[in-house]
Amino acid sequence: MGRADAATGYLFIAPQLVGVLVFVIVPVGLAIWYSLNDWNIFTGQLTYVGGGNYQAALDDPALPSVLGATAVFSGGVVALNIVLGLALAVMLNRRFKGAVLFRTLFFSPVVVSVVAWTLVWGFLLQDNGGVNGVLALVGVDGPNWLQNGPTAMVAVTFTQVVRSVGINMVLFLAALQGVPGELYEAARLDGADPRRIFFRITLPLISPTLLLTAIITIVGALQSFAQIAVLTEGGPGLSTTVLVYYVFQQAFSFNDIGYGSTLALMLLTFVMVLTVIQWQLRRKWVFYED
């Protein structure tokens, strides 16, 4: 039945495969074509410029700063998102009154429209806003969050993490509930302390989920646009201008679609490289992998 079965296999994956080809691969090919052209958006004229846009990227004085901000932001978001997501999941993976309520509370920002969410935070993070009001209650003179580089970066990272960590928490919760209770019992009988149990048993057992969340979170972080657009507009200076925001500016605000496509392809390359690295490394640390 091999050949017939193989045919069924192709049939089963056909909708997904064709979908990806049509809505992802072909557009990427078009984006590559655009990146080799200058496009006068008002007249609709494409002018072939070869590597001109790529040369422009190399010569762009803003790009090093943009890439730096991208690395700091994505790194911060991924690290915090996974640590906090895991911590919340561990705390809420017990039976106690209110656990369900707290799960819902931590998950709730995920369903709030990102625009509404960021608008509210933008207001709370004003110099005379709610965050500094709370800090003043405990005697701390809060900084003018969005007006200088480092604190603005902290602010956009924090709001992104708070908004999206709920998904990771739920994924981790699910993973934790899959860890057999007997393993914990046995470890406890052997006299292992909680920290050991966590690092020696829990973590390895949920490592496939860690891999999945790491990938989802990196892709999400590299694509978070609305937070930056609403909170800081990439400022002050270029301090929070991450690559995706820069791409959007070039392509949609400055109407430089050729250059925007070039930078977008660069973003795609980063995502790919990071993912391939993670995928290669997975055999080293993912417990179950085939």
Partner: peptide, 16 residues
Amino acid sequence: AEIAQKAKTELDAMWA
């Protein structure tokens, strides 16, 4: 848009 953005990036240093 590009002029506005480029100048804004530099002017941010004014507000200190």
